[in-house]
């Protein structure tokens, strides 16, 4: 990690720890704008920070670690793809409707914090992506299972432009980074709890069954962080179709194992609204579906491997890293 990355980590870590799951768009988005984290991936020439995907991994991971209730990743990716510093953008999972050269009629679904967004970047069924002006859209507010805003935007005759890029895959990578952070945070909570909590005259941490469970969790969290790093490094080199698919699958798998263990070792307290585990685990469960679940990414990844045949598997895998 470079000195600049360390500073970024310190700044974002401190800020997100303060804001956390209680943050709201209305009261706290200004703070994000002040430190220009929404311009993290936007080129300097366009008024952004000019950060790499390795920088983005640091910030998005911390957003996940602190269960930050603000669309930092969405805004940063939308701004970078659209090449815009002004206004707040976000990324839709799906766009359905009719489009001609410059106008769009239809529905945007699964839009994180779509309410009040100035523009939305959406994947285009014919490849590439579109940028839509959405300040005038009709918003049907919704939420994922963790309560994070996931809106439907109904757009009539909206101004539209076509751009290159794969917003769906980039958001999947952002979710992987957030999941890596959330898993580490849930692990830290669980380790802290079992060291404190006394039962049968000793701390839960002294029980071998508890130790073994948390060791498994630690392996899953480490695997997810390593996969996130591998995919972010590949993106920083240019593109990461294999790596993003593989990393999202790995993060999804770790989510099942990790959240089950985190709750199990916490006992009933972890199941309460007041305790801080659920903002992490409910997000993890929600993110597992968002921007591609297992079925989607496993066929995206497996298809070309099967088509290429076994003789290409290892040479292609090793060619991914320089």
């Amino acid at each position: 990690m470079s000195d600049q990355q360390r500073m970024l980590e310190e700044m974002a870590g401190g800020l997100f720890a303060d804001l956390g799951a209680a943050a709201t768009l209305d009261s706290d988005w200004g703070t994000i704008k002040e430190v220009a984290l929404d311009g993290l991936l936007l080129g300097e020439a366009q008024g952004g920070f000019g950060g790499s995907w390795e920088d983005a991994l640091i910030v998005f991971r911390l957003a996940g670690y602190h269960a930050l209730a603000l669309p930092v990743a969405e805004a940063a990716i939308a701004a970078a793809l659209a090449g815009r510093a002004a206004g707040r953008g976000t990324v839709a999972a799906v766009a359905e409707g009719s489009l001609d050269q410059s106008r769009f009629d239809g529905v945007l679904a699964g839009v994180p914090w779509g309410r009040g967004a100035d523009f939305v970047v959406a994947p285009c069924s014919k490849g590439g992506a579109i940028v839509l002006e959405t300040a005038e859209a009709t918003v049907v507010e919704g939420a994922n299972i963790a309560g994070e805003p996931r809106d439907r935007l109904i757009v009539t005759d909206a101004s539209m432009s076509r751009i290159d890029g794969d917003p769906f895959a980039l958001m999947a990578l952002a979710r992987v980074a957030q999941m890596a952070g959330a898993l580490d945070a849930a692990l830290a909570l669980a380790v802290g709890y079992v060291n404190e909590r006394q039962q049968f005259g000793r701390s839960l941490a002294k029980f071998q069954a508890v130790q073994q469970a948390l060791a498994s969790f630690a392996c899953e969290a480490a695997a997810t962080n390593c996969a996130a790093m591998g995919a972010a490094q590949a993106m920083a080199r240019g593109s990461a179709p294999f790596e993003i698919a593989a990393a999202k699958l790995r993060a999804n798998r770790a989510t099942g194992i990790g959240t089950a263990i985190a709750h199990q070792v916490h006992g009933a307290i972890g199941f309460t609204e007041d305790y801080t585990l659920h903002p992490l685990t409910r997000r993890l469960w929600g993110w597992r579906s968002e921007f591609g679940g297992d079925r989607y990414w496993s066929t995206v990844l497996g298809g070309p491997i099967v088509a290429a045949g076994s003789a290409r598997f290892w040479p292609d895998l090793t060619a991914l890293t320089r």
């Binding site: 593989a246 790995r250 990844l301 895998l317």
Partner: peptide, 29 residues
């Protein structure tokens, strides 16, 4: 992989994908 190539099915493609994801992650680690 070769079996899935001869007998195409989404189940097998998806399984290859999952196992490849795991192999890739373990290789990184």
């Amino acid at each position: 992989i070769d079996h899935a190539r001869m007998h195409p099915s989404e189940t097998l493609t998806a399984l290859v994908g999952r196992l490849a994801a795991e192999t890739w992650t373990l290789r990184l680690m």
